[in-house]
């Protein structure tokens, strides 16, 4: 009995983990199996014929997967860059500077935190359509240029920076920009790293907005590309489909395995506000 209670948690956790990981396992397994083995429902990890090369090559033939990945990198990178460039000074101003309208801005930022992007999609889409900017990288990125979450998060983090060091820096001749980027942000690098992960994961995996503004395969980020691919393939070639899914999922999963702690901090930062 004591033995059972001692091992019971591990048994339950193991069973649960199997369910959680089954899709990943099945995905990779199918991706390296020959299409002929499609009716083989065994979970034995070694395929009879190793066909990873064929399956992944098939993905490349059907859709420009490399292009999708590149699009994902461009869009995520662009979004993150502008988010940081705009949110850091704003957060610094909200945390450490006095200016008229500061409280109003803070209230607006907090209000905006409650508004999901999907609710703004229609007017933004209409605006981009009127400006003839649909089907561009700009359209993919623009709605995310401002992250109110980043402003809020950085403000919380910056507030704990000692005022006396900022004052010492002003006396020493630092410009306000140097104080903001060189001193205050430097002390908040963990928050920056966590936010970067949060932002990249969110936009790498986002389907809704790309589906709306992009009709051109050449601009599709990975999730949209995956959707194109699975629509075109419906049921025919599971090996290639799973190879595609593996490719789309791999970057974030690999990053997660490499930087588990930062990743969990980044994704769960929403929980610390």
């Amino acid at each position: 009995m004591p033995r059972l209670t001692r091992y019971l948690p591990h048994v339950i956790l193991t069973l649960g983990a199997c369910v959680m990981l089954l899709p990943f396992y099945w995905m990779v397994l199918t991706a390296i199996r020959a299409p002929a083995e499609i009716f083989n429902i065994s979970l034995w990890p070694i395929p009879e014929t190793f066909s990873a090369g064929r399956n992944f090559a098939k993905v490349g033939e059907r859709v420009p997967m490399g292009r999708f990945m590149l699009n994902g990198v461009i869009v995520c990178g662009g979004i993150l860059l502008v988010q940081v460039l705009t949110a850091v000074p704003a957060a610094y101003a909200l945390a450490k500077l006095k200016f008229p309208g500061r409280n109003l801005m803070l209230a607006l930022v907090i209000a905006a935190l409650c508004v999901p992007m999907q609710a703004l999609a229609l007017p933004l889409f209409v605006g981009l359509a009127k400006a003839h900017l649909l089907n561009t990288y700009f359209a993919l990125m623009a709605p995310f240029f401002l992250s109110v979450f980043a402003i809020f998060l950085f403000r919380q983090s910056f507030r704990s920076y000692p005022d006396e060091i900022i004052e010492a820096a002003r006396l020493d001749g630092f410009s306000e920009m140097e104080i903001c980027w060189g001193l205050v942000l430097r002390a908040s690098l963990p928050a920056l790293a966590a936010f970067a992960i949060f932002s990249v994961v969110a936009h790498w995996n986002d389907l809704y907005w790309p589906l709306i503004v992009v009709r051109d395969t050449a601009l599709a980020p990975p999730p949209l590309g995956m959707l194109y691919f699975s629509d075109a393939e419906s049921g025919a070639d599971y090996g290639a489909l799973m190879a595609g899914a593996t490719l789309v999922t791999a970057p974030m999963v690999i990053c997660f395995l490499l930087a588990r702690r930062q990743f969990i901090a980044g994704i769960t930062m929403t929980g610390v506000k």
């Binding site: 983990a17 899709p23 999730p223 959707l227 489909l241 899914a245 999963v253």
Partner: peptide, 21 residues
Amino acid sequence: VAYFLPVTSTLVAMATVWQFL
């Protein structure tokens, strides 16, 4: 790692996998 992995994965791709599963 085991339980958090799905959070980071692309749901579009994983939904395709589920469809197959």
